[in-house]
């Protein structure tokens, strides 16, 4: 998919470019000199490894960082958006308590994308699952389909959104893995904010990356692995 996209884009660029010669010769030259517009590719598969043994019960720093980065209100009513939440778990047999952050798992086989009637829910070539809010009609079928309850519906008109994180009433949203930061080469806000370094972010497809190495050496799980969705967010210690 990504390859075709790149090709198509190249094609478009050439043909648009040809037109552009007629319209704005100066601009075209500028563009070519600068031509570093690269589409994301499947060489990457962004993911996270979350070490729950390190994750402190009652700590909420990742959630706060997410709210700040993405301009969420931080409200906790059932109609407020929560892209990431802390879940407290108790093992029903041993009684062991676990605390972990839960968000969109960036499934490789995302049910939300399968069910979305307009294709607004989509997976980028690098594995990040997003909602294109320009085509989302707000049917909420994706929320019904997501096994992790990762999505929120914007129930009210919003104001003063972050320039990098457009959000609006009547559309569905969820964790973007801070795509606007990732595209700049930065880490997601939650990973950066965690005081215990429990969230390791990286490229699962690069065998040399820290996350890939760690996944090879420690025991990690995918939540509801039985559903076979191949999630990009992995957990350690549950």
């Amino acid at each position: 998919m990504s390859d075709t996209n790149v090709q198509r884009r190249q094609f478009l660029k050439t043909s648009v470019g040809a037109t552009a010669v007629a319209i704005a010769p100066g601009m075209l030259l500028f563009d070519m000199a600068h031509g570093k517009s690269e589409a994301v590719s499947s060489k990457m598969r962004w993911g996270m490894l979350i070490d729950t043994t390190n994750c402190a019960d009652g700590c909420n720093d990742c959630v706060k960082a997410c709210n700040k980065e993405n301009g969420l209100s931080g409200g906790l009513s059932p109609t407020d958006s929560q892209w990431i939440r802390k879940v407290e778990l108790k093992d029903m047999r041993s009684g062991r308590a676990v605390s972990l952050p839960m968000m969109c798992q960036h499934c490789a086989e995302p049910p939300c994308v399968d069910v979305c009637p307009t294709g607004a829910s989509f997976k980028r070539a690098d594995g990040i699952v997003l909602v294109d809010k320009h085509t989302c009609i707000g049917c909420r079928y994706c929320m019904m389909a997501c096994p992790y309850k990762a999505r929120s519906f914007v129930h009210e008109p919003l104001h003063d959104q972050k320039p990098d994180v457009p959000r609006g009433k009547g559309t569905v949203e969820s964790c973007t893995l801070c795509v606007h930061r990732v595209d700049k080469g930065q880490q997601p806000a939650c990973a950066e904010a965690c005081p215990n370094k429990s969230i390791l972010f990286g490229n699962l497809n690069d065998p040399e990356s820290e996350i890939a190495k760690k996944i090879r050496t420690v025991a990690s799980t995918q939540i509801r692995a039985d559903l076979g969705l191949d999630t990009g967010i992995r957990y350690q210690g549950i």
């Binding site: 994308v113 069910v115 307009t118 989302c136 009547g170």
Partner: peptide
């Protein structure tokens, strides 16, 4: 009831063939 009822036309032009809903 859609969050964005004015966009139903989008539903007609952007068609996701894997969606039962579509």
């Amino acid at each position: 009831d859609l969050g964005r009822p004015e966009r139903v036309i989008v539903a007609a032009t952007h068609f996701n063939f894997t969606s039962v809903f579509a």
